[in-house]
Design a protein around this nucleic acid. Structure first.
Length: 798
DNA sequence: AGGGTGTGTCATACC
DNA sequence: ATGGTATGACACACC
């Protein structure tokens, strides 16, 4: 054990050093403290929680057998418990992630690298946040420009922020504003080039405009009264874009061009060093859990709060309304992660399948270390302390992002292992995006069981990660909204966190308060012990309680009696294995509980405690009790010793387990003294009570197990419902997308009397209950142009 | 030495 | 009334 301990310790230290060399912070203490019980045990030695008692060992018994003979029949119980735990552990990652997953991202026709450190919370969160960022990127350009730092280079980046900038940039921007200026000019130039290339690819920032998305919900309503400025037109099309998920959208026609994006062009990969350099520039590794907190113009970010960096490198705060600080998004993300974890844990039946199906696909796991870091880890890895280099493709355009990851990271299951840090209960103003958060969640959740329940699952978006990215790209992500929708309160979040984090076993409410021994028993027994030894037996028989002195006296008495088989005493003492099953089968008692109390009943004792026993009972041979016999006899229960001392002619098992009728017959057959009868009754009472106590404890455990199971079931149901909700939302979104495309088609074909087309920016379609479609101008725009609303009956296309 | 855990036992209530 | 059961509380042993 010591060797093993040393081995592990040294190995961990070396590994830690190795990780630290590459910039990954490893907090061993946290692992030792609560994350790795086995390791901790190896290093620090066993703790009582994991070792020691037979009771725990029972739970850990491989097959549930080999149970302590003293216990009642808990085999099935513990086996069930064990199996349950095993099943749970199948999808639970009980080990913190210190692994470094470096993602070598290839970009089409470009040299963009998005590398992430596993131990760095930014990456996973990064991606997620980036999704948001992409959508929100355009929200508040004025805010960005207005209060933002005046870095010229980054201003340009900010202008291109919608183009899916890689993480370093956004973080760099954040970092620079937050005081982290680690990017070299080379990096900046590279980023700048990439941004420009993104622009060249035709991705407009407004595509993911947050403000536009903010109007999305309004757009959903029949908006004949809508304002009709140009931006509104764009808005409607942007909505279409948003609804289209990962599809590219033609900036002019608004048509989705889904097929173009997944194509991976020439890929230029950066070296690992470069990745790390960029990564490091983006995420200063030295700062443990503290993530570079971008200082938004509004300074809404709490200094201590983690702020999700974005792989797109887009600061969140500037894109959000001032009322919604970045930390909200961060917390929302954490909530999402928690939900996903719950989902993965509860509904993860397919997670393994996903892995198996894709083979090389790596599970993408957002796993916070105790410090709250998020990172990428491979879920199946028991101890995520490896450094892995992944490769991924990054589209040249931010819009490609989802699709790029689709083929590359197909079937990458997002199973974040994050505990809810804290749910932000703040009511952000960004509640308009009803679907945003839930969609995002759905993105994460859907992979779990997308094959079965995904109503609108598209063949080209099979994998969870792709879906995630897609959804994130499309949706207005309001994690707060998610939290609100899901009814998560802070208390619930913390509770969920506890539930997720601590899957601790049973903790019986065994209050072992060292109460003062003020019970009457003690005093009574003390008094009895102070009395003569002969009186001790009477006392025991009457009171049914004896101190060690009494027992010792009884033992000496037994020695005088002789003829016992002390070697059975231990077995007999532990022989309460569901003795109830032996009711009515007294013959089995002697088999399972080999009490050979064949000592003939001696002279009757005085039943009265005070009545002294005859001195003859205590022969001088008591003192000559052989040590081995004495030792063995010490293991006998007190009642057994008392019975032997009192020369009870039958076994305690019989006394205890015989039915009342047989028991009475047995008593009638023997002429017993009152003291013996009293002792027998006490033995029976205590024996019954002992079994009752065992049963009671067993029931207590079962109750706890059942409650635990109920909690699990409820959590599973919750996760399932959440997933269903996400799927419904996604379906609705896709329907909306389809609707918009149809509208677009309608408008493209519609002509007025003069043959002029109806610009969608000026007209909208209204759908009558009778199936008619009415073209109505948006506000007064049409009127200004002299066109009259025209009602046309359109073919039913839906 | 102190705490956690399991077990036995008692007291009490209840059936 | 008696016997059995259930359970909280306590003491003790063991680790």
């Amino acid at each position: 054990m010591l060797y093993l301990k040393k081995y592990f310790t040294e190995g961990l230290i070396q590994f830690t050093i190795l990780l630290s060399l590459i910039g990954v912070r490893v907090d061993v203490d946290t692992y030792l403290s609560n994350q790795l019980p086995p390791l901790r045990e190896i290093i620090l030695g066993p703790s009582s929680a994991y070792t020691q008692t037979q009771f725990h060992n029972l739970r850990n018994t491989l097959d549930g057998y080999g149970i302590h003979p003293k216990s009642v029949d808990l085999d099935q119980f513990f086996t069930t418990r064990r199996l349950l735990n095993e099943v749970r552990q199948l999808d639970r990652l009980s080990v913190p992630s210190t692994e470094l997953n470096t993602w070598l991202v290839h970009r089409d026709s470009e040299t963009v690298v998005s590398a992430g450190s596993q131990s760095n919370p930014g990456i996973t969160l990064d991606n997620g946040a980036s999704l948001e960022d992409i959508n929100n990127i355009e929200a508040t350009p004025a805010m960005r420009g207005g209060g933002g730092a005046p870095e010229s280079t980054y201003d340009l980046n900010a202008a291109d922020s919608s183009l899916g900038a890689v993480a370093p940039e956004g973080n760099q921007e954040q970092s620079s504003r937050g005081g982290n200026d680690d990017l070299t000019k080379e990096d900046i130039d590279l980023i700048d080039i990439l941004w420009r290339q993104d622009i060249d690819l035709g991705a407009g920032r407004e595509v993911f405009s947050y403000s536009n998305r903010q109007k999305d919900t309004e757009e959903e309503k029949p908006n004949t009264q809508h304002s009709k400025d140009v931006s509104e037109e764009q808005e409607s099309w942007r909505n279409g874009i948003n609804l289209q998920g990962s599809q590219l959208v033609d900036g002019e026609t608004g048509e989705s061009i889904p097929e173009q994006l997944p194509v991976l062009g020439s890929q230029t990969s950066l070296s690992l060093q470069e990745c790390l350099r960029l990564l490091e520039a983006t995420f200063p590794f030295g700062e443990e859990a503290e993530f570079p907190v971008p200082v938004s113009n509004q300074e809404v970010s709490a200094p201590n709060e983690e702020v999700p960096s974005t792989s797109q490198g887009l600061p969140l705060a500037p894109q959000l309304p001032a009322a919604e600080p970045q930390l909200d998004l961060e917390q929302q993300w954490q909530d999402i992660m928690a939900i996903m974890e719950l989902q993965a844990m509860e509904v993860n039946n397919t997670s393994v399948q996903i892995v198996s199906n894709t083979g090389s696909a790596r599970n993408r796991t957002a796993e916070p270390n105790p410090a709250g870091n998020f990172g990428l880890s491979d879920r199946p890895t028991p101890i995520n302390q490896d450094v892995s280099l992944h490769q991924a493709s990054l589209p040249s355009c931010s819009q490609d992002f989802p699709q790029i990851f689709g083929p590359q990271l197909e079937s990458v299951s997002v199973a974040p292992r994050t505990s809810l840090l804290r749910l932000s209960s703040s009511n952000s103003t960004n509640i308009n995006s009803t679907f945003g958060a839930t969609n995002l969640t759905g993105v994460f959740l859907s992979p779990v069981n997308s094959s079965s329940n995904n109503i609108t699952a598209t063949p080209n978006l099979p994998d969870p990660f792709t879906t995630l990215l897609e959804e994130s790209m499309l949706d207005e992500i309001s994690l707060l909204d998610l939290a609100m929708e899901e009814g998560f309160s802070q208390a619930q979040a913390s509770q969920l966190e506890d539930e997720l984090d601590s899957d601790s076993g049973l903790s019986l409410d065994s209050s072992h308060s060292p109460a003062s021994p003020s019970s009457s028993e003690t005093s009574c027994s003390s008094a009895a012990s102070s009395s003569s030894t002969s009186a001790n037996f009477s006392e025991e028989g009457a009171v049914g309680y004896s101190t060690d002195s009494e027992v010792a006296a009884a033992e000496t008495e037994e020695g005088a009696v002789g003829g016992y088989q002390p070697e059975y005493s231990k077995l007999c003492r532990m022989s309460f294995q569901d003795l109830s099953q032996f009711h009515g089968l007294p013959q089995l008692n002697s088999i399972n509980h080999n009490h050979t109390y064949n000592v003939p009943l001696s002279s009757a004792f005085s039943e009265h405690p005070d009545l002294p026993l005859s001195a003859g009972k205590k022969s001088s041979r008591d003192k000559k009790l052989q040590p081995s016999q004495d030792l063995l006899d010490k293991h006998a229960s007190r009642d057994e010793r008392r019975a032997r001392a009192m020369k009870i002619p039958f076994s305690n098992d019989k006394i205890i387990n015989l039915p009342v009728e047989e028991f009475n017959e047995l008593l009638a057959k023997h002429h017993l003294s009152e003291a013996q009868l009293a002792l027998i009754r006490d033995i029976r009472r205590r024996g019954k009570n002992k079994m009752a106590a065992q049963n009671c404890r067993k029931r207590k455990l079962e109750t706890i197990i059942n409650l635990e199971q109920g909690v699990q079931n409820l959590r599973r149901d919750k996760a399932r419902l959440l997933k269903e909700k996400m799927e419904f939302i996604r379906s609705i979104r896709q329907l909306k997308q389809k609707m918009q495309s149809l509208c677009q088609e309608v408008f493209s074909q519609l002509r007025d009397e003069e043959g002029r087309p109806y610009p969608p920016s000026e007209y909208c379609l209204q759908y009558g209950t009778d199936g008619s479609v009415l073209i109505t101008p948006r506000g007064g725009t049409a009127a200004q142009q002299g066109r009259k609303p025209e009602k046309k009956q359109k073919d039913k296309k839906k």
